[in-house]
Design a protein around this nucleic acid. Structure first.
Lengths: 136, 136
DNA sequence: GTATTGACTTGGACCTGGTCCATCGTAGGA
DNA sequence: TCCTACGATGGACCAGGTCCAAGTCAATAC
């Protein structure tokens, strides 16, 4: 069984066939599916699952902190199960392919107090853009 | 007249009352309006302007490189007229307020070759998150 | 094993942000 | 001043996402 399912069970998450399938579909590295893609993959395993349930389950996984939402293009949100290890994203400007990346340095430290406008700054998301080998 | 209008005229942009109003509404620092907000403000000056025209004009300004699109929340895109001076954004997690910021360092240099997956990397967007003074 | 119950699921209506298109209007050149 | 290609209009349409009332079921208690 996946780590994700293991953790959810440990947190007392009520297990249903639908939730299991959604969690299984999201398991792995460099996974960045849209809700519709999750629905499509879940449907192959559990044909009667509904769109609303997929949205509900994804929303819960996000509030549990097990999955993060990424919007790289202003269109559909994507769901990234790799929330336990902080990372940023590298996106192909042509085909939209996404890779998880780990830049050096501490971008939070690079924002001087004079550029904080009195905000309590707590995090930063970085989206690198480029062209992937397949599109070059 | 604003710099923006000046530049557009210099580039042979056909000037109409609608385009002028949209460009004027977008003039200034720390401006990050949604298309609907642009429409609302434009409507006070030119009541008969249509939604389609606002979207068309914003799209053109973006392809001309005079305005950049920002999506900070996966909802409506926002339009940032400050495209001629590169910058990043600091967003309040509570109220959504946005400030332009200029971090130190070169985030592009912080992405090692081993983390580039063969991409030709050309740029990076950073979104700092925090709580603004008004919401604290 | 059965009863109970509150949480989960469902499908469909609905909402928001955005795009498209046929038609009308007009800026700017001749 | 006239022409015409480009821009504006509004209304239909689309994608992604949310909401809701009704039905279903996992987990607990007995």
């Amino acid at each position: 069984m996946s780590d994700l399912l293991e953790r959810l069970r440990g947190r007392g998450w009520r297990m249903t066939a639908q939730r299991r399938v959604v969690a299984e579909v999201l398991d792995g590295e460099h996974i960045h599916l849209t809700a519709d893609e999750v629905l499509a993959r879940a449907t192959t395993r559990l044909p009667e699952i509904s769109r609303a349930t997929v949205y509900n389950t994804l929303g819960e996984l996000v509030s549990l902190g097990e999955v993060t939402e990424v919007t790289t293009d202003g269109r559909a949100k994507r769901y990234d199960p790799n929330a336990h290890r902080p990372h940023h994203h590298l996106v192909c400007s042509r085909c939209g392919a996404i890779r998880d990346v780990h830049p050096d340095g501490d971008p939070l430290a690079d924002l001087p107090a004079s550029e904080r406008f009195g905000f309590a700054v707590s995090g930063v998301e970085m989206t690198y853009r480029g062209v992937c080998p397949d599109c070059a």
